[in-house]
Design a binder for these strands. Structure first.
Lengths: 134, 134
DNA sequence: CGGCATCCTAATAGATACTG
DNA sequence: CAGTATCTATTAGGATGCCG
């Protein structure tokens, strides 16, 4: 009664790219960091000022929000406009490139809502999540 | 010629949630880390073994792949099955919860492909990206 | 208001070597 | 094959304070 021998496995389809600069990476690097998705989400609703974003995302510190916005700006996803008002205000908005990301953010939000709903009912999932954060 | 005074801004719609445990976060924490999205992407094609995933994602180290898989398993996104073969093999697959994430991964990949295509044509975008990585 | 400078910690990732 | 152990490097992120 010999053990079964491992079957040879099919390879993944060729259209799934694996290069370090592959599409998946190309998009993920725009979303990297714990806050980028949130910032883009709120900016996708409407252009926002710095302090408005701080209220939108209370848990983020000014330093990190600043850093993230600068990064997103450098990546061409977010535009920064200084408004000639008194006191001065700065408006952040999605660029055309940034708007391309909308489907992703929307999908994240949609799935997140589903997960929230599911978690509310399933004590098992909650236990798992507790274990996950050790 | 006084400077214009800042207009009061509208608040974002109430259905955009801002709590730390909001849907956006709930989903993002499943994708956190540099490799989670890749792992889920390949697993969404078909169940994969450890070493297959290493070939799928050559840039990941065994240690990190192992860590990520354990985390994803703890979060209930990925299942781990030891196959009774010789030599032993372990099969990873998406759980039902993991399959919920498919729209997100697919959207990321789709947008990524679009970005790749755009980058190929636009030297400006390439310059921006170069600046972004300092 | 919209930042930046500084200092700090914790998480994440990489290399290499080794094991059941 | 499917990992673990160890050690190190990089980075994200938080706290606080100052500035135009």
């Amino acid at each position: 009664m010999a053990l079964r021998v491992r079957k040879n496995r099919a390879t993944v389809p060729a259209d799934v790219e694996r290069a370090p600069g592959c599409p998946l990476n190309r998009c993920m690097e725009l979303l990297s960091g714990a806050w980028a998705a949130h910032i883009l989400w709120f900016l996708s609703v409407q252009p926002r000022r710095f302090s408005e974003l701080r209220l939108d995302i209370p848990a983020i510190s000014a330093r990190v929000l600043s850093q993230r916005l600068r990064e997103l700006e450098a990546k061409g996803v977010v535009s920064r406009t200084v408004m000639p008002t008194s006191p001065p205000s700065v408006e952040y908005a999605l660029t055309e490139l940034g708007r391309e990301l909308y489907p992703v953010i929307a999908a994240i939000a949609a799935v997140g809502r589903k997960l929230s709903a599911a978690a509310a009912k399933s004590p098992q999932a909650q236990r798992k999540r507790l274990l996950a954060r050790r």
